[in-house]
Amino acid sequence: MSEHASREAALPDGEEGILAVRDLDAGYGDLQVLSGVDLDVRDGEYVTIVGPNGAGKSTVMKSIFGLTTYMGGAITFQETPIHELPPEEIIHEGIGYVPQNENVFAGLSVRENLEMGAYILDHVPEDQIRAVYDRFPILEERSGQKAGSLSGGQQQMLAMGRALMLDPDLLMLDEPSAGLAPDLVDEMFDRIDRINDDGTSVLMVEQNAKEALRRCDRGYVLVNGENSYMDDGDALLADEEVRQEFLGG
């Protein structure tokens, strides 16, 4: 582990992860938000993006998922270029995405939400629903209830469960702890750890940067739509500059 975070954004020796973002430019309509972003997630890795508000952290995820205007660069996932695919095809490639807000269908039941997560399959995958229920037992108890009537934490679990319905190779989580009561935040991070331990790569944006960096394998620091550097989570935590700027000293 280096004493200071290396001022490099690429993996050493030109290594590529299962997700490889190279020199990505993207934005909304005419407005460019990201410029020259590089990012990798290795197989089974847990990666966090930290940075100040408005740095474009969420935009990185949306761009990977085909929800922004692509302006240049490349995104490959398991060697398939995905930067010009629509979201429904990116799902086919094996990426699951949990947006930050309004991430459940409030008017649908819990079970129906999970069924929608597997929409691209011809049949409802009962074994996968079983697996999600085993992971989040409260969802089974509430399976017939409208998702809108669940608590914030339960909705977050449902949103993750929905994204896990296709057993993705990479799970992208946008601020999973947002809006959760403090005592639920730790539990949520534990659950994410477990998902990662079971072999799913995780890419996460978190406002709770300290906790996120403590738990992840690697972190990227994103400032003004450009990523300045990356390092092991612990190394970033120890880095004076990162502490000063994003972690409140």
Partner: peptide, 18 residues
């Protein structure tokens, strides 16, 4: 169900692969 999901939240429906 997909129609109801879309009525609920079109952006999320897209993200879900509907």
């Amino acid at each position: 169900k997909a129609m109801r999901a879309m009525a609920d939240n079109r952006a999320l429906a897209q993200v879900t692969g509907i």
